[in-house]
């Protein structure tokens, strides 16, 4: 039993290290608006985004549909994890970043580097119903 446990732990270390060595670097082409749009459409059933913005560092993004509902894409490994923002979601600017506090504790706050687009999206989130 002990040998088996050691083998498993060693195996985990080996495989995770290998995954990090082979695939750990950032992809050569960081995601863009298109990817945020696709991710929102794919992840949220019946949600049809009309516009999207991607973080300048490729980390995370926002989308909005025709009714003004805003969806957030949180960077999660090499994928996005999406949520439709509930009305009244707390949002603010901090050091030039947009901070969106989702109401789920384990999903947490998402920091977005949107550059000049930030104020417009901040307003959209505040107005979102």
């Amino acid at each position: 039993m002990l040998t088996q446990a050691l083998l498993s732990v060693g195996g985990i270390a080996l495989i995770v290290t290998l995954a990090w060595l082979l695939f750990g670097r950032a992809p050569s082409e960081p995601p863009g608006e298109r990817d945020v749009m696709d991710a929102a459409r794919a992840a949220l059933p019946l949600y049809r985004p009309v516009r999207a913005v991607c973080g300048r560092d490729g980390r995370g993004g926002l989308a909005v549909d025709a009714q003004g509902r805003v969806a957030i894409m949180k960077p999660h490994g090499s994928h996005f994890s999406a949520r439709l923002l509930a009305p009244g979601t707390p949002v603010r600017m901090e050091d030039g970043r947009l901070i969106v506090e989702t109401k789920e504790r384990m999903f947490g706050a998402v920091r977005l580097d949107l550059g000049e687009a930030a104020p417009e999206w901040l307003a959209m989130i505040e107005e979102a119903r």
Binding site: W20, G77, S78, H79
Partner: peptide, 10 residues
């Protein structure tokens, strides 16, 4: 190189 294995996911 992208997407198929992600070390944190693994």
């Amino acid at each position: 190189t992208a997407g198929h294995y992600e070390w944190r996911d693994t």
